[in-house]
Computed example of a mutant assay.
Amino acid sequence: MPSADTLLKPREAAAELGLSYPTIKQWILSGKLSSVKTPGGHHLIPRSALAPLLKATPKPRETRERFRQVSGRNQLIGKIVEVKISGLLAKVVLSIGDQRITSIITADAAREMQLRKGQTAAALMKSTEVMITRV
């Protein structure tokens, strides 16, 4: 378990809070989020400063009950095996049985949902066409 006194880079703090890097920088510069400046002028954020900002994370459920608010019914539930954020996009790979589904979503959405390897998630498909190929 990480120490409450651990110093985080702004990008690491942004990932933990599910926020964008520019938002964290604005909060540092406005004084909303305390930081420590390195001799090189970089900001480091004490993990303890994040505690009041952390949202309670809901406990994942492996049922479709929580998705009933969405009209789409084509949902496959699995485990996240990879989350790779690069620039504006994020690659999320779900393992469902012995198959994998890859989705490309915005990096902001991945951060907002606080997607992490090992979590339970659902792939929701919405399409006007479904193609079948013989294997």
Results as ranks from 00 to 15, higher is better:
residue 76 L to V: 13
residue 9 K to T: 15
residue 1 M to H: 11
residue 85 I to D: 02
residue 16 E to N: 05
residue 76 L to N: 06
residue 102 T to I: 01
residue 2 P to C: 04
residue 18 G to A: 13
residue 120 T to R: 01
residue 42 H to C: 06
residue 4 A to M: 10
residue 106 T to H: 00
residue 97 G to C: 02
residue 36 V to C: 03
residue 97 G to W: 04
residue 108 D to F: 04
residue 2 P to L: 07
residue 32 K to N: 14
residue 84 K to W: 01
residue 35 S to P: 14
residue 107 A to K: 02
residue 1 M to I: 06
residue 103 S to P: 05
residue 88 L to E: 12
residue 80 I to F: 00
residue 100 R to E: 13
residue 2 P to I: 06
residue 87 G to C: 05
residue 38 T to Q: 00
residue 98 D to C: 06
residue 62 E to C: 10
residue 53 L to M: 07
residue 55 K to Y: 01
residue 113 M to D: 09
residue 12 E to L: 06
residue 8 L to H: 06
residue 39 P to N: 09
residue 9 K to A: 11
residue 23 T to S: 09
residue 117 K to H: 05
residue 29 L to F: 10
residue 91 K to Q: 07
residue 92 V to L: 04
residue 39 P to Y: 09
residue 15 A to Q: 10
residue 54 L to P: 05
residue 129 E to D: 14
residue 96 I to P: 15
residue 94 L to S: 07
residue 106 T to C: 03
residue 93 V to P: 03
residue 91 K to L: 06
residue 8 L to E: 03
residue 40 G to P: 05
residue 92 V to I: 12
residue 18 G to P: 09
residue 131 M to T: 15
residue 107 A to E: 11
residue 107 A to I: 13
residue 97 G to L: 02
residue 15 A to D: 13
residue 70 V to Q: 15
residue 131 M to I: 14
residue 96 I to C: 12
residue 96 I to H: 10
residue 84 K to R: 06
residue 111 R to I: 13
residue 3 S to V: 11
residue 130 V to T: 15
residue 17 L to N: 03
residue 64 R to W: 05
residue 40 G to M: 12
residue 113 M to W: 01
residue 82 E to K: 11
residue 56 A to H: 11
residue 103 S to A: 11
residue 38 T to A: 03
residue 69 Q to M: 13
residue 112 E to N: 06
residue 20 S to F: 07
residue 3 S to D: 15
residue 94 L to K: 05
residue 11 R to Y: 05
residue 67 F to R: 02
residue 3 S to H: 15
residue 42 H to F: 07
residue 86 S to K: 03
residue 57 T to W: 00
residue 111 R to V: 14
residue 56 A to D: 13
residue 94 L to R: 04
residue 108 D to V: 08
residue 31 G to P: 15
residue 51 A to K: 14
residue 10 P to A: 00
residue 100 R to H: 13
residue 80 I to R: 03
residue 17 L to R: 01
residue 62 E to Y: 01
residue 74 N to F: 10
residue 40 G to T: 12
residue 21 Y to Q: 04
residue 81 V to L: 02
residue 28 I to H: 07
residue 29 L to T: 14
residue 12 E to R: 09
residue 49 A to C: 07
residue 129 E to P: 09
residue 39 P to C: 07
residue 1 M to V: 10
residue 31 G to L: 13
residue 90 A to R: 04
residue 12 E to N: 05
residue 47 R to N: 09
residue 34 S to W: 02
residue 39 P to Q: 04
residue 54 L to A: 08
residue 122 A to R: 04
residue 41 G to C: 09
residue 100 R to I: 01
residue 121 A to L: 07
residue 129 E to L: 13
residue 14 A to K: 01
residue 50 L to Q: 00
residue 55 K to Q: 14
residue 39 P to G: 10
residue 112 E to C: 01
residue 52 P to M: 01
residue 121 A to H: 07
residue 80 I to T: 08
residue 40 G to L: 08
residue 46 P to Q: 01
residue 93 V to C: 01
residue 107 A to L: 08
residue 15 A to E: 14
residue 79 K to Q: 11
residue 58 P to H: 06
residue 118 G to F: 05
residue 46 P to L: 03
